[in-house]
Amino acid sequence: MEELRIDKWLWAARFYKTRSLAQAAVEAGQVKVGGDRVKPSRSVRPGDILQIRAGEQDWEVLVRGLSAQRGPAVFARTLYDETPQGLKRRLEALELRKQNVDPSAHIKGRPTKHDRRQLEKLKSFSPH
C-alpha cells in the first residue's frame, strides 16, 4: 500500500474516534497537508507532513506508515512521528492552558438545589 485516504489514515492513527469525525475535520480545514487545505479523499503517503487540529491540540506530524485498519494505540503511534518544532509548540500550548485554567471549567449544566441556595445566601448577604 503506497497511499491511503487521509480520513482513513487519521482514524487509523487515532487522531479522531470515528472516520466520519475525521472526514468532518478535514472538510472543516482542521487538517492540512503541507500547509494546504485538502479534501477527505486526498491520499497521504509516507513522508507527507500534516498539520492536525484535534480537540484543543495542534499536531504537526510526519507520516511514517499507512494502515487502513484501526489497531491498538501502540501500533497507531508507529504510523507517524511528531516534528520537533510541532512537539515544542504543542507542549508550550499545553503548559499555557494549565496555567490559565478557566474557573468555571468544572461546572456542568444547571446549578443544583444546594448550589442555588448558596447563591441566594451570597446575594442576600449584607455587609452593614
Results as ranks from 00 to 15, higher is better:
G55F: 08
L96H: 12
K39I: 07
L66E: 07
L96V: 04
A54L: 05
Y16K: 08
L96Y: 08
K8H: 07
W11A: 00
W11P: 00
V26M: 02
Q57C: 09
T83W: 05
Q23A: 13
W59I: 08
I52H: 01
L87F: 12
M1R: 07
D115E: 15
L21H: 12
T112W: 11
Q23M: 07
S104R: 12
A105H: 05
G34S: 06
A68K: 13
R70Y: 09
A54R: 04
A24E: 13
R89N: 13
V101L: 12
R117Q: 14
D7I: 04
R42P: 01
G65M: 05
K8R: 14
R14L: 02
P84W: 05
G34T: 04
L50Q: 01
R45A: 10
R64V: 09
W9V: 01
A28C: 06
G71P: 04
Q99H: 07
P111D: 10
A105T: 02
L62T: 10
R117K: 15
E56F: 13
R37I: 10
G34C: 04
S41Q: 10
L119Y: 11
V31Q: 02
I6M: 04
G71S: 15
D7N: 10
S41E: 13
L94V: 04
R97Q: 14
E56G: 11
Q51K: 12
P127H: 13
G65A: 14
P103Q: 06
H128E: 11
A93F: 04
I6Q: 01
S124W: 08
H128I: 10
A73Q: 10
V26R: 00
K98H: 12
K32G: 06
L87D: 11
Q99S: 11
A68L: 11
K32R: 15
A12Y: 02
G35W: 00
P103N: 07
R70F: 07
A12D: 03
S41A: 15
L79G: 03
T18Y: 04
E27C: 01
E120P: 03
A24L: 06
K98N: 13
S41I: 06
A24F: 02
A68M: 11
A13T: 03
R14V: 05
H114G: 15
P84H: 07
A28K: 12
N100C: 07
R70M: 08
W9A: 01
F75S: 12
E120A: 15
T18S: 11
S126A: 13
I52F: 01
G86N: 06
R37W: 05
Y16Q: 03
G47I: 03
S43F: 09
F15A: 09
A105S: 13
I107C: 01
G65F: 05
V38F: 01
V61N: 04
A12R: 02
S43H: 13
A54F: 01
S20I: 09
A105W: 02
A13W: 00
G109H: 05
P111H: 10
P84Y: 03
F75D: 13
D115S: 14
R42E: 09
T112G: 12
V38P: 02
R116S: 11
Q51R: 11
P46I: 01
K88E: 14
T18C: 03
R90I: 06
W59V: 09
L50W: 01
R37F: 11
F75R: 14
A24N: 10
E82R: 05
E27L: 09
K108P: 01
L10G: 02
V26H: 00
D7P: 03
H106Y: 14
L96S: 14
K32A: 07
A12H: 04
E27W: 00
V61D: 04
A105N: 03
E27V: 09
A25E: 00
